[in-house]
C-alpha cells in the first residue's frame, strides 16, 4: 500500500507516503469516498496541531495538484450553504429592534414637523397635547370646531382653506400608519423573544432584552460576555472614555431603563444594575442551553437583593 497519511479535503481525499509525497487521490464525498477511506483505513488522518509539520508539507504538495475550478466550485457551494444556514432568530430580532429604534427617531422628527405645521392653524391644540402619538391622532380625528367648542376664547391660529388642512391630515394619517407599524414590530419582537429567550424576556422585558441582544450582536455572544460587561452594554462611549482618560467608569448602559434600576435610590442604581446584570447573565445562559424556565424566580432574587 505505502500510504501513511490521509488528508480529507473539500477537493478530495489525498494519500501521502511517509515523505509526504502525494501517492493517490480519491473522491471528495459520497459513497465513493467512504469506499476509498475503507480501502485505506490504515493511513493516519492528518490533524492539527498533532501533525502540524506533516500537514504543512501535505498542503504544499497538493497546491499544484488540485484543479482550481473544482476547488472553487466546492468552496463556493459550501460557503453558500454556510451563509444560508447561518441565519438564526437572534439575527432577525436584532434587525427588528433596530427598525423600532429607527422608527422612533423618524417618528419623533416627523411629529415635530407636523406640530410646527399644524400650529399655524391651531396652536392651542399642539400645546395642550404633549404626547406626539396622541397629537397626531388628534390631528386626524378632531376638527378645529370640535376642539374649540366649550372654550371661552377663539383660536389665534390662521383660518386655512380646505386643501391646506387636507394636506396636514393626510400627512398625519401616514404618521399614524408608522405608529401602527412600530406596535406591530414590538409585538413581533415580544413573541419571538418568548420562543428563543423566555428567561431573558422575563427578567429584562422583551424590549430591553432585545436591546441587550442588539448590543452583543447574537445570543451566543451575549452568553459569552461576563456580567460586568452586560452591566454596561450601551455605555461603550463612556467606557472607552474611562479606559483612555481615566474618567469615572459607567455604572450602567441600557439596563438603566429597567424599573428595578429606575426605582433604586440615587447613588444605589449602579449596585442595582450590577445585581440585575448578574441575574441576566444567568438567564441568557439558561436560554442558550435550553434549560428550564427560571426567569421570574431570577427577577425576584434580583429585586430582593437590591432591596437589602
Amino acid at each position: 500500500m505505502g500510504a501513511t497519511y490521509l488528508l480529507e479535503h473539500i477537493a478530495g481525499c489525498f494519500l501521502f507516503d511517509e515523505h509526504l509525497a502525494l501517492v493517490e487521490s480519491g473522491p471528495p464525498e459520497g459513497k465513493e469516498k467512504e469506499a476509498f477511506l475503507k480501502t485505506h483505513a490504515s493511513a493516519v488522518p492528518l490533524s492539527y496541531p498533532a501533525h502540524a509539520i506533516q500537514l504543512r508539507r501535505a498542503l504544499a504538495a497538493i497546491a499544484s495538484k488540485i484543479p482550481k475550478g473544482g476547488l472553487r466550485a466546492a468552496n463556493l457551494a459550501r460557503t453558500r450553504h454556510d451563509v444560508k444556514h447561518a441565519v438564526s432568530d437572534d439575527f432577525l430580532i436584532v434587525q427588528a429592534v433596530k427598525s423600532i429604534e429607527d422608527l422612533d427617531k423618524v417618528l419623533n422628527s416627523l411629529a415635530i414637523r407636523l406640530r410646527d405645521w399644524y400650529e399655524f392653524y391651531l396652536p392651542e391644540y399642539s400645546v395642550s397635547q404633549p404626547d406626539h402619538a396622541e397629537f397626531v391622532r388628534g390631528v386626524v380625528e378632531t376638527t378645529k370646531e370640535q376642539f374649540l367648542s366649550g372654550k371661552k376664547t377663539d383660536s389665534f391660529g390662521a383660518d386655512l382653506g380646505k386643501p391646506h388642512i387636507a394636506a396636514m391630515k393626510q400627512f398625519a394619517e401616514r404618521l399614524l400608519g408608522l405608529y401602527a407599524a412600530k406596535q406591530e414590530l414590538e409585538r413581533y419582537v415580544d413573541s419571538t423573544m418568548k420562543t428563543i429567550c423566555p428567561n431573558l424576556r422575563a427578567i429584562a422585558g422583551s424590549t430591553l432584552g432585545a436591546k441587550l441582544l442588539e448590543h452583543a450582536g447574537t445570543l451566543k455572544r451575549l452568553v459569552e460576555l461576563p456580567s460586568s460587561t452586560v452591566q454596561i452594554l450601551g455605555a461603550e462611549k463612556a467606557l472607552f472614555r474611562h479606559l483612555k482618560t481615566g474618567s469615572r467608569p459607567p455604572k450602567y448602559g441600557v439596563l438603566l431603563a429597567h424599573d428595578a434600576v429606575q426605582s433604586a435610590p440615587k447613588g444605589r442604581q449602579g449596585r442595582a444594575a450590577r445585581i440585575l446584570a448578574d441575574k441576566i447573565s444567568i438567564a441568557v445562559r439558561i436560554d442558550y442551553f435550553k434549560g428550564q424556565f427560571k426567569g421570574d424566580a431570577l427577577l425576584e432574587e434580583a429585586r430582593k437583593k437590591i432591596a437589602q
Binding site: Y48, R56, I66, N75, L76, T79, A86
Partner: peptide
Amino acid sequence: GNIIPILENAFHVDRLAKRISA
C-alpha cells in the same frame, strides 16, 4: 473566477486546512 470565498474563523486552521491549499 479567481476568488474562493470561505466562511470560517481564521483562528481555526484545522478547519481551513480542509478547504484551501498552500
